[in-house]
Amino acid sequence: MTNPRSDRVKAVRSLSGRSARSRHGQFLVEGPQGVREIVRHATSRVLDLYVTSTAATRYDEIVGAARTAGLHVHLATPEVLEAMSPDAQGVLAVARTDGRSPAEQLAELVAHLPVSRPALVAVLATVRDPGNAGTVIRAADAAGADAVVLSGESVDVHNPKVVRSTAGSLFHVPVVTGATLAETVDALRAAGLLVLAADGDGRHDLDDLLDVAGSDAVVDLARPTAWVFGNEAWGLPAADRALADAVVRVPIRGRAESLNLATAATVCLYASSRAHRGVGP
């Protein structure tokens, strides 16, 4: 491919916008890390792979895996890749979005929660910043979470900045979108999960909960758990906090006014991951 003004290039570039993603049911995966992970872990979602000759040599394992899987690999000039996406770094994939309804996605999530060990789910309630959303998905993956839910008016998970910020974790952990927070909480609680809201004014201190985890405390971090994280600017409204079984604060021992959303979420998810160690076979 040599023409940066071709209709195909314009169609791919349009996927940086939400309306085109919604209309076509497709999204962009930009850069070698994200493309490597979708080729490895979500092969069936890949529609096309675009790569420059230089990148094909540098990332020959990506191209080789894609061709072995029977994916469409298109060699293109640097100008074509740049026109498709300035963040492609010579490697770009077009992938399918999940066309299922929120109810179907939630049902699938619940059906596949583990039974031999405590489940861990991160729920983002009206998280608007794409960098924060992507970082929480990456942190949830690293902490061993079983799923992430973006509820309410949260950012589109297929926003290119969200996809890049996950560093490939979007293709490791199930991500559910579109369900309301109330629907999500109801489904997870019915599946036996303790629902905890993270908030700076929470009644329960996270460190105190870790101290008694596994002792059948009223709020026991050793239980299967869903963490609810609020908006970057205003946190969780009272109505959202009321949906949770308990509201938990991350202790701040220094002079920082607060933690940003992604940092607080990482701390909470790792606290649960630690409490879950050794629970189950």
Rank of each mutant, 00 (worst) to 15 (best):
P102S: 08
R67C: 12
A217Q: 05
T166F: 04
H172L: 15
A187E: 08
H276I: 05
P4M: 07
K10E: 13
A111M: 03
V155I: 14
A147S: 06
R223T: 12
V218C: 08
P281R: 15
S258G: 04
L106N: 03
I252S: 11
D199I: 10
D60T: 15
V110N: 07
L196D: 04
P174M: 13
L221H: 08
T2L: 15
A244L: 04
K10Q: 14
V267E: 02
R253M: 13
P114V: 10
A217T: 06
H112W: 11
A262C: 02
D146H: 13
V163E: 00
G144Y: 05
V148W: 01
H74M: 12
T126Q: 13
R128P: 00
A122H: 02
P4W: 07
N231G: 01
V46T: 07
P114S: 09
D146C: 07
A111L: 07
L236E: 03
G99L: 11
A222G: 13
S154Q: 09
G134K: 00
A103I: 10
M1H: 11
L49I: 15
D146P: 02
S165F: 09
A217P: 00
D129S: 08
N231P: 02
E79S: 08
A56I: 08
L188M: 11
E257Q: 14
E183M: 10
G70D: 10
L47A: 11
P130D: 06
V94A: 07
A244K: 02
V212Y: 03
R249V: 06
V46N: 02
R274L: 15
A191S: 12
P251A: 12
L71A: 07
E183V: 07
S116C: 10
V46C: 03
H158F: 15
D199H: 14
V94W: 04
L221E: 07
R164Q: 12
V148P: 01
V51R: 00
Q89N: 14
E108T: 14
P130A: 09
N260I: 10
R23F: 09
G235N: 01
